[in-house]
Amino acid sequence: MRHWTLTYSSQTQALLWLPMILLALVLALIGVHVFDPKARRWTWKALAVIGVGMAVGQPFLALSWVPPEKYMGDTGRILYVHVPQVWMALIALTLNFGASLAFLLKKSWVSDALAEASAEVGVLFGAVGVTLGALWAKPTWGAYWTWDARLTTAAILLVVYSGYLALRKFIEDPEKRATWSAVVGIFAAVDIPVLWFSVKWWRSMHQTQSNPSTVDPLMTAVLRYSATAFLALLAVFIYQRFLVASAKRNEEVALPEALPAVGGTP
């Protein structure tokens, strides 16, 4: 379709690989962070530097480097933030599901804190993503909100996890809060794919997903670059929020070792 793809300079061609290299770097850092506790002192800082740096460069690439989209024009540029934001939300909420499941299998304040952190950050990214989607839809489809399957599901997903966060705020006892929110987290996560299909069948309106082969490689590169930037930020946010949650949990649940042993027998 777009034959001008072939006219890229070799310099530009080489640059198309950059996002993949950065992505590998970010993933490696996240991996080190997860598996080597000692490295956590610096890994998050490195991720923060990469994330902020890339996020600063991102508008530059997406707003000026990439040519406007053929049909949508400049409005299409919103997709370079909208799509990765929604991806990040899905990653965070999947993490929430994993943490909830882990908590029910083996009680641990680590998985509880991780569930809290991932849900909140997931809702943040989801809310931004959905808002951007609506902003994009107005000039493209003529309305901020069309009730198509993906939009509807995304909106309900936000409500589901806002309810989850509200529940966490409304239970004072840390043990109960952890168990009950884990149950709600699992119900919510299982419901998401079900919801998506049911809304789709309900509306029976199709919208095929675009995939890299039909999109200009330049655009794919920028999309990947943006996703990498947001992934680094996502990791930093979740980790920091996790530290906040853990600290709060430590305040809430003192350990029995703190008590002197003065046992007595009748």
């Binding site: 004072e172 006892d173 840390p174 305040e251 809430e252 649940v253 003192a254 029995p256 008590l259 002197p260 042993a261 003065v262 046992g263 007595g264 027998t265 009748p266």
Partner: peptide, 25 residues
Amino acid sequence: DVSKRFGPRWAVARLTFTLATGRAL
């Protein structure tokens, strides 16, 4: 050595005792 916590408060703290069968406490 039983302890039970409700939120920040310890309702039972490091308690140890036994009661033989048939006895009343």
